[in-house]
Amino acid sequence: MSRREEGAAVPLIVGLFAIALAFITVAAGATSLHLDRLRLLSVADGAALAAAESFRVADVAVRGDEVIPTLTAGAVRAAADAYVAEAGPTGVRQVAIVAAGTDDGRSATVVVRGTWRPPLVGAFLPDGVVVTVESTAAARFR
């Protein structure tokens, strides 16, 4: 008695194809999220650097051999806002500065938020994720 098995491979192939498609979708989304977070971090780094250089000459103190610039919260925020406005498109939507300021008068901290949208929207990925990054830069003379 010989039994023939027919059609057993088709459900396996369809299942494997569905798993592979889901994996590719999630991998593409994770890669896109990582790259967009790095782009947003580059914007935050540039804004923090511009903000760290926002001091005026009148705000510089000399103590011995050390030249110490002093940052103000208003100047830090204005410089960060100007940098983000000029930065242009980053691939991340709704880029905005959440906070910009200085805690010690010698370093500028900038927090930037944006919305990431996946390249392939589906059941495995959300429609959008809010990404927040923070960068700090110090004002120094060397």
Rank of each mutant, 00 (worst) to 15 (best):
3 R>Y: 14
4 R>T: 13
4 R>D: 14
4 R>I: 12
5 E>H: 12
5 E>P: 06
7 G>R: 11
7 G>N: 12
9 A>V: 08
9 A>H: 11
10 V>D: 13
11 P>A: 07
11 P>D: 10
13 I>E: 10
14 V>N: 08
14 V>T: 10
15 G>T: 05
17 F>T: 15
18 A>M: 08
21 L>D: 14
23 F>S: 15
24 I>W: 10
25 T>R: 02
26 V>Y: 01
26 V>C: 07
27 A>K: 09
29 G>W: 00
32 S>F: 04
32 S>N: 09
33 L>N: 02
35 L>V: 06
38 L>R: 15
39 R>S: 05
39 R>A: 05
40 L>K: 04
41 L>I: 04
41 L>Q: 15
43 V>I: 04
44 A>H: 01
48 A>G: 10
49 L>W: 01
50 A>H: 00
50 A>Q: 00
51 A>M: 02
53 E>L: 14
57 V>I: 12
57 V>N: 09
57 V>Q: 10
59 D>P: 02
59 D>E: 12
59 D>G: 07
60 V>T: 09
62 V>W: 06
62 V>G: 12
63 R>I: 09
64 G>R: 01
65 D>Y: 04
66 E>C: 10
67 V>D: 11
68 I>V: 15
69 P>K: 04
69 P>M: 09
70 T>N: 13
71 L>Q: 04
71 L>R: 02
72 T>M: 11
72 T>Q: 14
74 G>C: 09
74 G>E: 11
74 G>R: 08
75 A>H: 11
75 A>F: 06
77 R>Q: 14
80 A>M: 01
81 D>R: 03
83 Y>S: 05
83 Y>V: 00
84 V>I: 08
84 V>M: 05
85 A>Q: 13
86 E>M: 05
86 E>T: 11
87 A>G: 06
89 P>T: 13
91 G>F: 04
91 G>M: 07
91 G>P: 05
94 Q>Y: 15
94 Q>I: 10
95 V>W: 01
95 V>D: 05
97 I>T: 00
98 V>M: 09
100 A>F: 01
100 A>N: 03
101 G>Q: 01
101 G>F: 00
102 T>M: 04
103 D>M: 03
104 D>A: 02
104 D>R: 00
105 G>L: 03
105 G>V: 03
105 G>F: 02
105 G>N: 04
107 S>N: 07
107 S>P: 01
107 S>R: 03
108 A>P: 01
111 V>M: 08
111 V>W: 06
112 V>F: 03
117 R>P: 03
117 R>E: 15
119 P>E: 08
119 P>G: 08
119 P>L: 05
121 V>C: 10
121 V>M: 12
121 V>P: 15
122 G>V: 04
122 G>E: 13
122 G>T: 07
123 A>E: 14
124 F>C: 09
125 L>W: 01
127 D>Y: 07
127 D>F: 06
128 G>Q: 14
129 V>N: 07
130 V>M: 13
132 T>M: 10
133 V>G: 00
134 E>V: 06
135 S>A: 14
138 A>K: 13
138 A>L: 13
139 A>S: 13
141 F>D: 08
